[in-house]
Design a protein around this nucleic acid. Structure first.
Lengths: 186, 186
DNA sequence: ATATAATGATTAGGAACCTAACTATATAAG
DNA sequence: CTTATATAGTTAGGTTCCTAATCATTATAT
């Protein structure tokens, strides 16, 4: 059929240990191949999850970013400033402006100029926006829970711990060389 | 100074357990808050890693995708078809075309028409491309290793295992509801 | 042999995010 | 009180990836 332009289920895209070993050996580097594998796998997982997330939210007429904005609004009594949203979501204010534009066009959110500071324009969750969140909650959370369904309670704790430490380590990619354990001491 | 448009170090963007609990309680759902937390944290980590990765590779005049293409070429004797590359990298052929365009413009790769099948145009790693890989290898792998430096050998194994199972679970986001343990049995 | 299908790569256009520059308001300094 | 500076939000334009449509070749079916 026309499955020729499908991304082949990512099955072949999973990095293997031999691949990592080969790359390291090629340049005679003193590097732990398993460490490279962890990094590569996390990267692949992140990309795959990001893509899956967009598909998931598109079922409700949303994107990942727009859902997160709505959810954050709901967590803050339905009203926030764009700059607060940007900080909470970990994106730039420019991105927030774009997210709001579409959410406002779709009636899920509205803008209101602030009285005390003329520069601020607070964002408000509309009744329709709240309804959208209410309607999608059961399926949304059920799917998220199912996603980690292959891990038992204890494994989830362990995973959170390990993931947290690797996440700290991400700064090793962006920071100066040799300062890998910088983010937090220890 | 002008750190006002920085993404605030992502520190406030880390999802917390109370946040997850609140969201679930709001709709009286029977969902494990920790499961939601795992999903949210993985998502945040993936986004952060993706961003850091782009910064990392930009130091060498590359993007994540273009580096991965070069590395895959190197892993395959310096010659591959675009369709193979697409499969290995887990992206579409259209994306590969774009990656090749820039790599070719920069002289790291060249295209050659196949003799046996006129539709195919194989991609070849140039000497300059190989040199680029050679030069960046030490720093690149050192940084990757440093990234997981907060985990010891055993923890890396555990993390790989758990990450693998969560990655399998990602299909729960995109597949039909109720088929969460589909990818592999149990 | 010739019309039809499939296939490999490309092009065209879209979505999500970014940085940098801009507008309008507010605050501080002389 | 006027000028300089900082801040909130927006706009403009770029990057990476995507889907869908197109072009050129090859394979298949009458």
């Amino acid at each position: 059929m026309n499955n020729n332009n499908k991304v082949t289920n990512d099955i072949d895209a999973i990095p293997s240990l031999v691949q990592s070993k080969r790359q390291i050996d090629r340049y005679n580097l003193d590097i732990d191949a398993q460490a490279i594998l962890v990094a590569s796998r996390l990267m692949a997982a992140g990309a795959k999850l990001g893509h899956a997330s967009e598909i998931h939210f598109s079922r409700f007429g949303l994107s990942t970013g727009r859902y997160r904005l709505l959810a954050d609004l709901e967590d803050n009594e339905g009203e926030e400033l764009p700059s607060q949203l940007a900080e909470h979501l970990g994106v730039t204010r420019a991105t927030v402006t774009g997210l709001i534009d579409i959410l406002e066009r779709d009636g899920l959110v509205s803008r209101r100029s602030s009285s005390d500071d003329g520069r601020q324009r607070s964002v408000i969750l509309t009744e329709e926006g709240a309804k959208k969140l209410r309607e999608m909650a059961p399926e949304h959370f059920a799917r998220l829970e199912a996603m980690v369904g292959l891990l038992n309670i204890e494994e989830r704790s362990v995973f959170l711990d390990l993931l947290g430490r690797v996440t700290q380590g991400i700064s090793a990619l962006t920071g100066e060389l040799g300062s890998e354990t910088k983010g937090k001491h220890q």
